[in-house]
Design a protein around this nucleic acid. Sequence first.
DNA 1: TCAGATTTGTTCGTATGTATT
DNA 2: CAATACATACGAACAAATCTG
Lengths: 88, 88
Amino acid sequence: MSDNSTPTGPLDAQSATPLYIQLAEIIAKQIASGSLAPDRPIPSENRLAEEYGVARLTARRATQELRDRGLVVTVRGKGSYVTPANGG
Amino acid sequence: MSDNSTPTGPLDAQSATPLYIQLAEIIAKQIASGSLAPDRPIPSENRLAEEYGVARLTARRATQELRDRGLVVTVRGKGSYVTPANGG
DNA sequence: TCAGATTTGTTCGTATGTATT
DNA sequence: CAATACATACGAACAAATCTG
């Protein structure tokens, strides 16, 4: 289908940039702007999936991307937290 | 019938119908038949998981499906109970 | 009040299968 | 075929509520 429904959120399925990268960028900006403060949890994978209309695994990849960039630390069974600016 | 979309017995992992739907159907039938009476608790998530050889989360999804159908009410820390016929 | 067991609630970790591009 | 994306499913850990002793 060349037709594509209008994106319900800020994510653009037409973009050459993968959805999980787009989502990671959005969260990264929120961290940079202070909207998501150090030591505070970011939304859960399920929450992000619901919010942005993607699968949980896609939300998960976004979180992993943020980990690769050192922006968050993840704790199994708890969640992902914004990396403290002072490093601990 | 070659159709197996609504199995009445054991769970069929090969079926196109998800396991949690299959399990929900089984319990729903037990409620309809009176095998599980109103106001009585249904088996716990762990119990269902053991009984039917599925993961706890899969048993949990079945229970949530029953909640969506209004067949049971769930109380945290206690269990899920068959919805009373009088609608309570 | 406290400790322990049971049960539901939540979250991350991982794997498989299918569909689309 | 490869990368991306989604649905389902199992596993592990943590959390909160309930009940018993």
